[in-house]
Amino acid sequence: MSNAAAMAEAEAVKAVPVGGRKEPRNYIFWFAVVWLVLVLLITIFGEWLPIVDDPNERNADTIKKGPSWDNWFGTATFGQDVFSRVVVGGRISLRVAAIGTAVGIGVGGTLGLLAGFYRGWVDSIVRLIINVTLSIPALLLVIFIVAVRDQSLFWVVFAVCILAIPALARIVRASTLQVAEREYVKAAEVVGAKRLSILFREVLPNVMPTMISFAFLTTGIILVAESSLSFLGLSVEAPTITWGSIIAEGRISFQETPHMVFLPAVVLFLTVLSLNFIGDQLLKRYDIRESAL
C-alpha cells in the first residue's frame, strides 16, 4: 500500500540512482577483471609463450633456487621452473573449477529453477536432494569418492560437481521463488502465456544475474577445494600438476624454499579473490538496479 510510496520517498532521498557509474570501488572491480583475464590468457596460451618451459623438465643446475630473471618464481625440488608449473598447473585447476561450475549451474541451476517455479512435488524432491547432499560432510564425501575410484581428472571433477550442484540448486531455488512471486509473472499468466514460456521469458532472465554472480563465487570455492584435495594428496596424481599440488609439494621443504609455496599461493589467492570480488560486485550491482527500480 502506501508503504511503497514511503519507500519511494526514502529511496528518492537515499538516491543511488540507476546509472550511477562513478562508484569509488570500481577500479578494484576492473583490477579483478584484468587479473582474471591475464591468468586465463597465460594459462591457456602459456605453452606458446617463450616464458613458459616444460614444467617437468629437471635441471640439476637450478635446484631449489629463489626467483631470478630466468625463473620468475624460482625453481622446484628437481630444478623445474615453478612459474611454468604454475601456468600449466593452473590450466588443470581452472579447468576443474570451470567444469565444476558449469555442471553445478547446469544441473543445480535447472533443479533449483524447476523447484522454485513449479513448487509442489517437484520442489519436495529437489529439496530432499539438496538437504541430503548438503548434510553429508562435503570433504569426506569427496575423499571417499576419490579414494574408492581413482585419482583421475574425471573423478576429481565428479567429486567437485557433487559439491557444487546442491549449493547452487539451493541458491537458484531461493531466487526463483522470489522472482516467481513478482506480479509481472502473474501478469504474464493473466495475458495467457504458457507456463514454460513464463519460465523462460519472465523468470529465468531475472534469476540469471544471481546465477552468474554465484557462478563466479563457486568457481573460487572450487579452486580452493581442489587445492585442499591436492594438499591432502587426493587430487589428480603426478605427473599432472595443479596449483594445489605445487603448493603441497613446496610445503615439504618450506624452510628452504618458501617461494615454492608462497608465490603459487599468491596466484591462487589473487585469483580466488578476484572471482569473489567480481561475483560480489555483480550481485550488488543487480541488487541496486532492482531496488532503485
Binding site: 532521498v13 538516491a15 543511488v16 550511477g20 562513478k22
Partner: peptide, 10 residues
C-alpha cells in the same frame, strides 16, 4: 544529501 549524481537538496 551527497549522491553519486550530485548534491540532492531534500
Amino acid at each position: 544529501f551527497a549522491t553519486p549524481r550530485g548534491t540532492l537538496r531534500a
